[in-house]
């Protein structure tokens, strides 16, 4: 197992740990924070995957993720705080 593969494995274990918080989390804000953290972890693992496979276009996928995950989190947070009003 190379260094990069080990790093990928460790990030996968981190995702599982955050997932426990997402599932147990007493409030909806805990779950939302967990979603954001998992999204960050996924972006990191995409970059590592791009290094392992030596395919530079995977970096573009990471960019798309970084932009879209942000929009999703902001929309859910807005929805909860405004009590069901999206506009």
């Amino acid at each position: 197992m190379t260094f990069l593969e080990t790093a990928l494995l460790i990030i996968a274990i981190y995702i599982v740990l955050v997932l426990i918080r997402v599932i147990l989390g007493p409030t909806i804000w805990d779950r939302l924070l967990g979603l954001n953290t998992i999204s960050a972890k996924i972006i990191m693992s995409i970059v590592i995957l791009a290094l392992i496979t030596d395919q530079s276009f995977l970096m573009d996928v990471a960019l798309v993720y970084a932009l879209l995950g942000f929009i999703g989190t902001v929309l859910i947070a807005r929805f909860i705080e405004k009590k069901g009003d999206l506009s």
């Binding site: 995702i15 997932l19 967990g34 998992i38 996924i42 999703g72």
Partner: peptide, 12 residues
């Protein structure tokens, strides 16, 4: 929220 996490992991 769960579905958001689900689709993130599935796309990875």
């Amino acid at each position: 929220v769960y579905l958001g996490v689900f689709s993130l992991i599935s796309s990875f």
